[in-house]
Amino acid sequence: MAPEVRDALFDDETLTLLTQVADTDPALVVTDFHDPAVAPALARAEALLTGWECPPLDARALELMPRLRTVVHAAGSVKHHITDACWQRGITVASAAGANAVPVAEYTVAMVLLAGKGVLPAAAAYRAKRTWISPIDTIGRGGNYRRTVGVVGASRIGRRVIELLRPYDLEVLLYDPYVDTEQAAELQVRTVDLDVLARSSDVVTIHAPQLPSTHHLFDAQQLSRMPDGATLINTARGSLVDTEALTAELVSGRLNAVLDVTHPEVLPASSPLYELPNVLLTPHVAGSLGNELTRMARAAVDELARYAAGLPFADPVRPDALARSA
């Protein structure tokens, strides 16, 4: 990982825990597997603790690590550095994706409730008029009582969102082609196809992975199915939404949006989405940041402790599931 990533992830207490679990030098941060200065350490390494900006673990890199048996990633997705060569070597992999899911789900639930309350149009109207505004006149459709929330994707984050929404008087719909009736019952949601979810939801929140099959999952046709005044929340990947089609809907004022990710990321400076009163743009902050990063580091150290004790990982990454995960 990059040195600044190490510094952001690990506080002193977590570094102490790491040295109790593993024979390691916390000051040694590898940014290039082919740097001669780190060759002796890599040759001895049984485990790698990785983070953002880890170089790809391809066959050439793995040749430098003959003793490597496991990789623990102190962040979410491992797709940037875990290659087929790792699986061919039988290397086990774990990640802190479950820990990173927590703040994303919390952000999402906050935005679902604000969207249901009609906060975006209310704030815009108040800012424009700068005088008393009757909530009944301004946001007559607002309120979270018996609203319908459509969750797209029963990923770690999607499942956490569903769990956090249970205390509220909301109906939750789920679209996920991999969730069967029994799993839906466990999640306490009703599964529907994507068309029905789009037509029926006051708020749609996207938690599906970026795959060829999910590219522009919400295109012009799907967006047109959403009810007038509905809100689209995207904390997954920007490419899951057709930006041009969404921009047209938002400029018209028919829909609202909360976008923590966009495509492209960052949007051009000329994009109207920066200024529209019915859009909340945030710069990819739903995931772990600040002191939340320590949660991911702790999760990674816990996984290393399990490995050292000969126990299975609590949150393993499996090659068959990786193909349809973030």
Results as ranks from 00 to 15, higher is better:
Asp7Leu: 12
His73Cys: 07
Gly116Val: 02
Ala299Met: 08
Glu292Ile: 05
Cys54Ala: 10
Ala105Arg: 02
Asp58Tyr: 00
Lys79Phe: 08
Ala99Asn: 09
Ala269Gly: 10
Ile133Cys: 14
Gly290Cys: 09
Glu63Pro: 01
Glu292Tyr: 00
Glu53Trp: 06
Asp193Met: 05
Ser95Leu: 03
Ile133Phe: 02
His80Pro: 00
Pro319Trp: 13
Gly90Glu: 01
Ala45Gln: 04
Pro36Trp: 01
Ala59Val: 14
Asn144Arg: 11
His284Leu: 11
Ala308Leu: 05
Val279Lys: 15
Leu304Ile: 06
Val203Trp: 14
Glu292Leu: 05
Val149Lys: 14
Leu259Phe: 04
Tyr175Phe: 15
Asp25Gln: 08
Leu174Arg: 00
Thr231Ala: 08
Met111His: 15
Val196Phe: 01
Asp193Asn: 09
Tyr307Asn: 03
Leu232Gln: 06
Ile133Ser: 13
Thr108Ala: 08
Val258Lys: 02
Gly290Val: 07
Leu48Gln: 01
Leu322Arg: 07
Asp176His: 04
Ala236Pro: 12
Thr50Cys: 11
Leu120Cys: 06
Asp202Val: 01
Cys54Pro: 03
Asp84Ile: 06
Thr205Tyr: 09
Ser270Trp: 03
Asp32Trp: 02
Thr24Lys: 02
Val317Cys: 12
Met1Arg: 07
Gln20Thr: 06
Thr243His: 11
Arg146Lys: 11
Arg298Leu: 14
Ala99Trp: 02
Phe33Glu: 03
Ala110Glu: 06
Ala122Leu: 13
Ala99Pro: 11
Pro66Asn: 08
Leu68Ser: 05
Leu211Ser: 07
Ala39Ile: 10
Gly310Ala: 08
Glu13Asn: 08
Glu163Asn: 06
Arg60Cys: 09
Ser252Asp: 04
Val149Asp: 08
Ser270Ala: 14
Pro316Asp: 10
Ala43Cys: 03
Asp169Cys: 13
Leu48Tyr: 01
Arg147Ile: 07
Pro55Met: 05
Leu267His: 11
Ala8Cys: 05
Glu46Ile: 04
Gly143Ser: 08
Gly310Val: 13
Ala245Met: 03
Ala269Tyr: 04
